[in-house]
Design a protein around this nucleic acid. Structure first.
Length: 218
DNA sequence: GTCCAGGGCCTAC
DNA sequence: GTAGGCCATGGA
């Protein structure tokens, strides 16, 4: 068992199965992935609730919204002007290339789908991987700020690795299994929300026995 | 009032 | 190729 698998076992023993992502449709996952960029998930929930109340959680309905209306609905998620543009570019792409079906984009080979997402302005590697994994069920490991922070503290990372380097590390050392990748990322987020903030709260942390920076103070 | 949150783009060097 | 600035809201 690799070190990364050991960490997974400890996390899953502590938190159980989390069954992410909190969304009702693949397209809603993609919306959430864009809205959560550098933003607290609670704020994203408010924005998605606004979209749901307006019955605008499909590519077609988003595409039909005037820009100012969409800005107003997603305002609680912050960076609302940028995110409005990013959502509009995504739905325009789905409309022109995939008959308004995100599922069609995600039915392609994973590298093809990933590169297509990365071509879109406003969709970087983390957002693309979140969409691939949580909307498409494709085995693409998601690296986020929590992943970097936790595995830096655990001694797996030194802090200057690129996104792709970290993703490759996980994908090389874990079985290619979308269910595992799904659960692992969810567990990292769940753990970090409790114990691995910028100002760490390490009392009772289930990983404190192996965390080389468990007692770091801010 | 300050810090922080499930990034990504652009510019300057 | 990369460091730094910028984008914005709401809760702790």
């Amino acid at each position: 068992m690799t070190g990364l698998e050991t960490i997974f076992e400890k996390l899953t023993t502590t938190y159980g199965s989390l069954y992410w992502w909190p969304a009702e449709t693949p397209f809603e996952v993609a919306i959430g992935a864009i809205l959560t960029q550098n933003t607290n998930w609670k704020n994203v929930e408010m924005a998605i609730t606004n979209l749901r109340d307006e019955q605008t959680l499909t590519p077609q309905t988003i595409a039909e919204l005037p820009r100012q209306k969409l800005e107003q609905l997603i305002r609680p998620s912050g960076f609302f002007r940028q995110k409005t543009e990013r959502l509009q570019l995504l739905v325009e792409h789905l409309q022109s290339r995939h008959n308004n079906q995100l599922e069609q984009l995600l039915s392609q080979p994973i590298d093809v789908a990933r590169n297509e997402l990365l071509q879109l302005k406003g969709i970087g590697p983390e957002t693309a991987d979140s969409i691939l994994l949580y909307a498409g069920g494709l085995p693409s490991f998601v690296v986020d700020a929590y992943t970097r922070r936790l595995f830096e503290r655990l001694g797996f990372l030194c802090g200057n690795e690129s996104y792709e380097q970290i993703r490759t590390l996980f994908m090389d050392q874990l079985p290619t299994d979308s269910t595992l990748f799904n659960e692992y990322h969810a567990l990292i987020v769940e753990h970090c929300k409790r114990f691995c903030r910028k100002r760490p709260l390490c009392i009772d942390c289930p990983l404190s026995d192996i965390c080389i920076k468990a007692n770091v103070s801010s």
